Amino acid sequence: MERIKLAIERAKADGGLDAGIPAPSQQDARWVPPPVANKIATAPNRPVSSPAQYRHTAVVDLDPAHLERNRVIAHQKTHLASWAFDVLRTQVLQKMDENGWRTIAVTSPSLESGKTLVSINLALSIAQQSQRTALLVDFDLRRPSVARVLGLDQPVSLNEVLNGDVDVSEAMVSPGIARLVVLPTNRAMSRASELLSSPKVSNLIGELRQRYDDRIVVFDLPPVLVADDVMAVLPHVDCVLMVVGSGVSSKAEVEEAMNRVARANLVGVVLNKDTAPAQQDYY
């Protein structure tokens, strides 16, 4: 306990905790976050270690044209499709607030369902709310793509964090969008399932969740049917969002994916790549 206090005091003396993310703000009346300090010190079955020393987060301005080409549009309120992610954000946050959830995993039954695009746009939409901050984490260790879709080209990423080479604060990136921070993965990693089920990852998830009361952490996970990676992570996150690509996954694949996440808190299912025209009577 004394080591934790000393580490926090040292971090404050060095310039504050993670200055790239705003200080916590007033939450919805239904939101009652747990005492952070007590939870760090007394969490069961979790070794006590010094918390990450958060410092200034690197800021990288993204290319608007690159984002447009990759359909990253939730931050553009004039874009005709941004409303869909705002509706998704509101539904997801209402469900999470009702249950005190702050970490959400996004997955899909099979490849090419668009779960990474949904993860990115959901995190962007959450960050548009002034009382929230969003952290997007690329946990698809087999086929990481968040950095590529966003156009991030940083030398340090989650790879180095999981290898024990750097602190997690050194791998975080602010993409020049207020209240959003990204923890990318640059390269595929071997033994992904074993890594995701390790105490190192469970401790990392706890650290990311507890650091700020207003933070929503969005984890982009691999497809459920590719391997057991998703099942390894789900016990450590609060809820899961399933993205089903229209015409991509068969009925049998969707049913099998739902069976595999049956023990998790399913916050909802997104039908992606639907070609039916949107009905917006007022706009």
Rank of each mutant, 00 (worst) to 15 (best):
E2R: 13
E9F: 12
R10H: 13
R10L: 15
A11T: 13
K12Y: 15
K12V: 14
G16M: 11
G16V: 10
A19S: 14
I21Y: 13
P24D: 15
Q27T: 04
D28P: 01
W31V: 10
V32R: 02
V32G: 00
P35M: 07
N38W: 13
N38P: 01
K39P: 00
T42I: 00
T42G: 01
A43D: 05
N45H: 01
R46Q: 11
P51F: 08
P51D: 09
P51H: 06
A52S: 13
Q53C: 11
Y54S: 03
Y54I: 02
A58N: 13
V60P: 05
V60G: 08
D61Q: 12
D63C: 13
P64I: 09
A65C: 06
E68S: 09
R69P: 10
Q76I: 02
K77W: 02
L80D: 10
A81Y: 14
W83H: 13
F85R: 01
D86H: 13
L88I: 07
L88A: 09
R89K: 10
R89S: 05
R89T: 03
Q94W: 03
Q94E: 05
K95E: 09
M96L: 04
D97W: 12
E98Y: 15
R102G: 13
T103L: 07
I104A: 08
V106Y: 08
V106G: 04
P109S: 01
S110R: 00
S110I: 08
L111C: 07
E112C: 04
S113G: 09
